[in-house]
Simulated assay, not measured.
Amino acid sequence: MPSTRLVGLLATAIRQQRQSRELSQCELAELAGISQAMVARIEGGDRAPSLAVLERLLAAMDVQLVVGVEPLDAHLDARIDDLASQSIAERIDALGLDRLLGRLSDFPQVIIGSTAALLQGAPVPVDALEIALRWQDSKPFTRWLETNYGQRWNARWEEFGGVWLEPEEPGEHRWSTRYGEIRATMCDELPETIEVRHGERSYQVVPLVELELTEPRAADLLRRYRDRQLAGDG
């Protein structure tokens, strides 16, 4: 059977889970009630497991499969590889991060999400500045948006514009501005941060360990990056 991307992903996932538990192929096969030869073929990408066999293999390691989809043209793996070849300074410059942050001086904010992960060295794709803002600062934020040609994301039409700017109004906390896109998480109190420095600038960011506990999107990207590292080492 010809190998496919999905077969390869399953093979890598099973092999990594087995190795992390320090199980041999024979031991996993015995736990799952299949032959060692079948485990070897599945891990080698030479055989696609049936759903029943896949569930038995995962259950034997006390894990389960979580299925998600994404657009084919996202090419996340290629983007991660490309970002990994760049310095952090290059990634910051490509995002226009300093230019945007330099103009967000009217109210306190904290860098969160994938932006915070990037500033801590993780080569994850970032398409917007992700920040946490306090509700008490929503009015100066709205004034800033008005001054800088802000448009809020309209989920109905899947484009920016045509809805109220104010964070208090229903809708995603996502805006386009003259300096770039901003995605905000509104909160009563700003989260705890650490300081990271790049060049002459320091940034207040949520630590990676906290991102992985509280922000699913950033956690998924970090996990994807680490899985690719493990696959490359293997």
Rank of each mutant, 00 (worst) to 15 (best):
S114R: 13
L104W: 05
R201A: 14
E146Q: 13
P207D: 05
Q25I: 02
V63A: 03
R47A: 01
G234T: 07
L28E: 07
G171M: 05
A128S: 15
I111C: 04
H198D: 12
P170W: 10
S176G: 05
I182K: 00
P71E: 08
V7Y: 10
D77F: 01
R18F: 02
V53H: 10
G45V: 04
L165W: 05
I80T: 08
L72M: 07
P49Q: 12
L100N: 06
D62Y: 07
A48P: 06
E195R: 15
P2R: 04
K139Y: 03
E212S: 11
R156G: 07
S35E: 04
N148M: 02
G96M: 10
F141V: 00
H173S: 11
F107L: 06
N148V: 03
N148D: 02
L95R: 09
L230A: 06
V7F: 01
A40V: 02
G162I: 04
R18I: 08
E192A: 13
A11T: 00
E90A: 13
A78K: 10
A32H: 10
G162W: 08
V110L: 02
L213F: 09
T4V: 09
V63N: 08
I131D: 03
M38E: 10
V53D: 14
P125C: 07
W157E: 15
A218C: 15
D127M: 10
E159L: 11
A122D: 06
S138M: 00
G44N: 03
D93K: 14
S202W: 09
L129E: 06
R217W: 13
D233M: 04
L213K: 15
L165V: 05
